[in-house]
Design a protein around this nucleic acid. Sequence first.
RNA 1: GUGGCUGUGGUGAAGCGGUUAACACGUGCGACUGUGACUCGCAUAUGCGAGGGUUCGAUACCCUCCAGCCACCCCA
Length: 418
Amino acid sequence: MALTAVKGFNDILPDETGRWQYIEQTARRVFELNGFGEIRVPVMEKTELFCRSIGDATDIVEKEMYTFVDKGGTSVTLRPEGTAGVMRAFIEHKMYAQDPIAKLYYLGPMFRYERPQKGRYRQFHQIGAEITGVNDPLADAQVLNMLTSFFREIGLTEPTLQINSLGCPECRPAYRAALRSFLEERMEHLCEDCKRRFDTNPLRTLDCKSQGCIEATVGAPSVLEHLCSGCDDHFSSVRRYLDISSTPYSINSRMVRGLDYYTRTTFEMVTGLLGSQSAVAAGGRYDGLISQLGGPAIPGIGFAMGLERVALLLGSQDFASSPDLFIATMGAGERDVAFRLMDGLLKTGVRVEMDYEGKSLKSQMRRADKLKACYSVVIGENEVTSGRASFKRMEDGLQSDVALTVDEIQLLVRKSEK
RNA sequence: GUGGCUGUGGUGAAGCGGUUAACACGUGCGACUGUGACUCGCAUAUGCGAGGGUUCGAUACCCUCCAGCCACCCCA
C-alpha cells in the first residue's frame, strides 16, 4: 500500500455519506426548530483555551491533544471538543452585549489522540448545541427535550437519557470530602487508577468499571444528597419540567464528567449497543466556564453527540438516491440528441444519466439497472426521426410510448414519483 | 499508554512447505441477432502486509516491524 490515511483518521465513502447527511439534516431541522442558529468556528485554537476550559488535569488535556507550535511560535491545538471554541467566539465577538441569551449549534470534526476502537477515532465528528445566559432550569429541560426528540426523529429509541447533578462550587467540595472519607476506608479494594484519582478526582471512582471499585463504592454517598439548596431546587425543577413534557429519563447519581467545567445538571444519552462506547451524546451545565475564559459571568448549558456513534446505531440503511431516467444511445449521431435531452431535463430537476463511452446497448442497459434508474429509454435512428420512443419502467419492464420532449418526459417522471 | 486477535484480489474467503493460489460475490466484455434483472461463456492477484531468517524450496515455520480490529483506559 503506497499511501494510506493517518491512523484513526477515516474516509467516509459515498455509500456512507447518505447516512451522515441524514443525521446532519435531522439535527439541523430539530435544532433550528428549537431556535438554535449554526455557528462555525475554527478546528484549531490556541492551546491555552483548552487548558483553561477543559481542565489541565484531565486526560484530554494531559495526553490526548494534537498540540504543536506553529511557524510563528504559537502553541496551537486541534480542537478536542466544541464547547470551548464556541464560548471563545461568544466572548470574543461580545455576542452577550446584544443578547446574553444565545442558542448556538455547531458540527464538525474533533481530534483526540486516542487508541482507535469501535466508535472511537482520532478524528471524529460531533454535533453540539449550547444555550448561554439562562440560569433557569427551563433551559436544561429544553436542551434535554431537544436531544430526546432528535433521537426520536431520526428513528432511534435505543439510547436512553440519564441525568444527574454535580452541584456547584458551593456544595461540591463538601460532597467531595464526604466521598473521600468513604473511599479512604476502602482504599485497599480500589484499582490503581482510582487510588491515584483519590487526590485529583475522587468522583471518577464512582464511574470506574473495575470490579473492585464497583463493589467498594456500594453504599457510597450520593451527590444528590449533598446538593446545596440552590442546586437541589434547580435539579428538582429540571425533573419537574421533564415530567411536564413527558420526557423519559432515569437518574444516575454516579454519572461524572471528564471535563472540569461542568456544574449542576449533567446528562448522557446511553446505549448498550456500542460496547464500552456507551455514551452517544453527553453534556451538562457549565455556569463558570464563560467567566473562567475571561468573559462576563454568564451561565451556559449544552451537549455534544458523536456522529460516528449515531451512524453506528442507525446501521447500514440505504440512503442513496437513484436516477429518474437512463438514456441509452445507439450511435454517435443519437448521442447529440440524447445529450440535448439530458441537459434539458437536468435543468428542470429531473435526474438523468446517460452512457458516456459509446458502449454496447447491452452494457448501457446493465448500467441503467445497476444505477437503479426508474426509467430507461433507447434512442436510435428510428426514435430520432419519429421524435418518439418507448420508455421502459425498469421495475416491471412495462413500456410506454412517449414523445422525446423535456415536458412530456418530465410529466412521466413526476407522475411516477407520486 | 497496556493487553488480545488478525493480516491472501475490489469484497467474503480456501490453501497451512513443493506443479497453473480453489470457490463465491463484484467488476468488465460477450452470447440470447435494438433493451437490464434469469441463464451461459470469457476475462479479472505487479504472487499471498513489509523486511529479515530457517529450508533444496515458503503465502504457509521463526523473528522484527507495520497496519487493522477488539478490549482496557478515556470519552461523544
